[in-house]
Amino acid sequence: MAKRIDTSGLDVFYGDFKAVEDVSLTVEPRSVTAFIGPSGCGKSTLLRTFNRMHEVVPGGRVAGKVLLDDEDLYAEGVDPVAVRRTVGMVFQRPNPFPTMSIYDNVASGLRLNGVKGRTLLDETVEQSLRRANLWEEVKDRLNKAGSGLSGGQQQRLCIARAIAVEPQVLLMDEPCSALDPISTLAIEDLIFELKNRYTIVIVTHNMQQAARVSDRTAFFTIAGAGKPGRLIEIGDTAEMFSRPSERATEDYITGRFG
């Protein structure tokens, strides 16, 4: 199921402002790739180009290519809506639909795609919640509002919602930054399990987290205010944290800046 992402010569813009410049990288399937770097380096912006969420900001556009296996996400005739169905996303702050029950939250993506059968919905909801390690905690209150859960539970609910539609890729934009350490641990465990099925890209501020959960790490930085973010290097996580090949990466990882 999981697919590979390739970018080549990708520039990302907000209107006339170039936020990210000339990124060429590969995200391997069934693995976790972490994007790290100082604030404003464009790592979240880049992540949002992988499911074309970047475009919902007025003026947001890209130049270059993003390939999902062999398909260009930005080719003419590709509907951003179809891209987002294939590439799921989890946000910085848990954002379950406040007016929907836990069940309806998980089922929402399926219903969009026309799944109507009650048994199929029930099965998929249960399976998704199980995969998100949330089933045991919520199985008795599936019809209660999702907003009544704790922050960590809400985030796992959002993950369940995202994986219910069986995406090819799961994008996570600082999924733990609004959570306490225990909830963070639960999410990290979950990421570790999910990578057996999905291609995962996670943006994080937390280098320990990148070191813990990711197989590969990409380091981005920015030359100065108003300059575009750039990819400095990408490689095996263990290698990068022990022997970074670039000086900038080493400075960042060892806490000399950022």
């Binding site: 697919k3 999902l68 296996d69 398909e71 590709v78 509907d79 179809a82 891209v83 969009l112």
Partner: peptide, 17 residues
């Protein structure tokens, strides 16, 4: 480009459109 015929990025159903 293979996009138009691919199955992964198949356009959404006509009724939704």
């Amino acid at each position: 480009m293979a996009t138009a015929t691919s199955t992964t990025l198949a356009p959404i159903s006509d009724s939704r459109k």
